[in-house]
């Protein structure tokens, strides 16, 4: 009887024994996490090196930068903020900053106004050629700006906007509107048609439908498009370089490069300080709106 019991007990044990070793779920998960963290840390270090180098350099004097025995990666001691202060007292940095802010605000406002209206009509109103037009909008985005700046030179000259900061308000939307419209088309198409129909039956006009239903519902997409338009304008370099020659009309990007590099003399301490301060506004905007930005891009990618 004892033998029978022993056999009965040992049987499940022998069945449970695996024929070959397999990692448990938690163990594989742990390895996956370690791998992910290692990859992310590497990625973060790679992308944080330039801003770190900018910060370190901006806190050094010109002599410290030029010193051969100094470590270019180490924080100077004592650090100096004289470069940062000098930006506002000795250079035209405040003017460049003002020009960039004005051009960006105008570009964002114009781009969003056009692309929201365009996306609403292309995604919701059936009219002759609407599908072709939507494809055309996307194709416009694919044309590189380096191809456009020479023909645009003619247009800018014709309009009398050469060497004026307002040229940026004219040309930046040509880059931002197609992409913003494309993002918004995708987002608007993901809104169920029944929502429009319910609103129309409730008594809404087309404009009320856009203002009271579409814009609030598509806010993540609108924010994503806004960030894109902001980036295009804030970081725009080629067009202002080609069309603006006077310092008082230049934005940050061109202004810094034009005034702080004199012939073959690079004022690294000033360039780095200016570049760091110029990078702050996008950093603040991205930090606050990143979640919306990702949500908006994802919607555009899958539905558009």
């Amino acid at each position: 009887m004892n033998t029978t019991v022993a056999a009965a007990v040992s049987e499940p044990v022998s069945r449970a024994a695996p024929s070959r070793w397999r990692p448990s779920l938690s163990r594989s998960r742990k390895w996956a996490l370690w791998g992910a963290y290692a990859g992310l840390i590497l990625f973060a270090v790679f992308f944080l090196i330039p801003p770190y180098y900018m910060l370190v350099t901006s806190l050094k004097t010109s002599q410290q930068i030029a010193a051969i025995e100094g470590n270019p990666w180490a924080l100077p001691w004592p650090p100096t903020v004289s470069n940062w202060l000098a930006l506002f007292t000795d250079t035209q940095f405040p003017i460049f900053f003002r020009n960039s802010v004005i051009a960006t605000i105008c570009t964002v406002a114009i781009s969003m106004a056009i692309s929201i209206l365009a996306a609403f009509s292309l995604s919701r109103m059936r009219f002759w050629g609407s599908a072709t037009l939507a494809t055309g909008v996307f194709l416009c985005y694919l044309i590189p700006e380096t191809l456009l700046f020479i023909p645009l030179f003619q247009v800018v000259g014709f309009l009398g906007l050469m060497d004026s900061m307002w040229v940026m308000v004219l040309v930046f939307p040509t880059l931002s509107v197609p992409f913003c419209t494309w993002i918004m088309i995708g987002y608007f198409q993901s809104i169920p048609k029944e929502l429009d129909e319910a609103a129309l039956i409730d008594g809404a006009s087309r404009l009320q439908l856009l203002l009271k239903i579409f814009i609030p519902v598509a806010m993540p997409g609108i924010i994503a498009a806004t960030i894109f338009a902001f980036t295009v304008s804030w970081a725009g370099f080629l067009y202002p370089l080609a069309y603006i020659f006077s310092f008082d009309q230049m934005p940050l990007t061109v202004g810094i490069a034009s005034t702080m590099i004199k012939a073959d003399v690079f004022q690294w301490h000033m360039i780095m300080s200016a570049a760091l301060l110029a990078a702050l506004p996008p950093l603040v905007v991205y930090a606050f709106l990143m979640d919306y930005y990702i949500a908006g891009l994802t919607a555009g990618a899958t539905k558009g």
Binding site: E194, L195, E197, A198, A199, L200, I201, P216, V217, M219
Partner: peptide, 20 residues
């Protein structure tokens, strides 16, 4: 006559509630 002026109300299959 457009839908809003027909004085009708409609209930949809997927509810069509305004999410915001």
């Amino acid at each position: 006559i457009p839908p809003k002026d027909r004085d009708i109300a409609m209930v949809f299959q997927n509810y069509a509630l305004y999410p915001h």
